[in-house]
Amino acid sequence: MNIHTYEKTWLAVSMVLIVGFIATVTYGAVGPGIAMIDDDGGSIDPDTINDDERFNDPGVTHVGENEYEAAVVAQAWTYTPSEITVPANSTVTFYVTSRDVTHSFTVAGTNVNTMVVPGQISEMTVEFDEPGEYGILCNEYCGAYHHTMEGKLNVVPQDEFDLTELSTDASDEAQLGNQTTINTTVSNDMNYDLETTATLEIGDQQSLEQDVTVPAHGSETVEFAVDTTDLGTGDHDWTVTVDGHEESDTLTVTNATEGGDGDA
């Protein structure tokens, strides 16, 4: 072969460039510790997603001191949950799977990005140092309304973060003189027990308090018995407060004679 010296030099320089590129990527893996999406998440039958322990109630779960897991189900054209909130200074492992076609789970303006292929679970671990708000979008065509598929990721300061949720079961109406109850179920998705106080305030008149301990990854129902005699007839706004979370509604107390058969 009759190769010009300049071209031999260029060949050598090109090899240096190629090796340099591979070296940079290798540095990225061992230095900053960047890991690629791989087969760690395993596979799943999309028809069994609702029965899957991780995906039957997708969302954020506390698994270690500063460690969280976020399970997300993608489907045309939405993410469940559509809004994810995690604390700053935490390590979050995302598990994302698809119910139908191929999607992506992409946190816009960051390097958090994975394909979501039906039958597969994408697993990725991300450290969130600073609070911030990010958009989540699908960057793989997934049908006619692909462009409407989006979500939200909120990284909040640690002291503003918890995994407490309230749901309240109460009657809207009660007869004067009868007792009614306001039941609040407090769920706790942290991996330690939540010891707190539940407060019920009705208008300016009544304030009830109960201590409650919600077990880790469990829930506890607080029952407030309300005596309608003290309230009198009329509309009464009430608020249940637990661990900074509030649930409110209105209780209408009616007169026995006006209220019909009175089994409210």
């Binding site: 060949l11 090109s14 591979i22 690629m36 999406i37």
Partner: peptide, 27 residues
């Protein structure tokens, strides 16, 4: 590269081959 279900090592092999494929274009 961002597909689940394919081990990182296979992706690395694909990258190495791809990078060497730059050679004929640079030549």
């Amino acid at each position: 590269y961002l597909d689940p279900g394919i081990a990182e090592g296979f992706k690395f092999i694909a990258m190495t081959n791809t990078m060497f494929l730059l050679l004929p274009s640079l030549l």
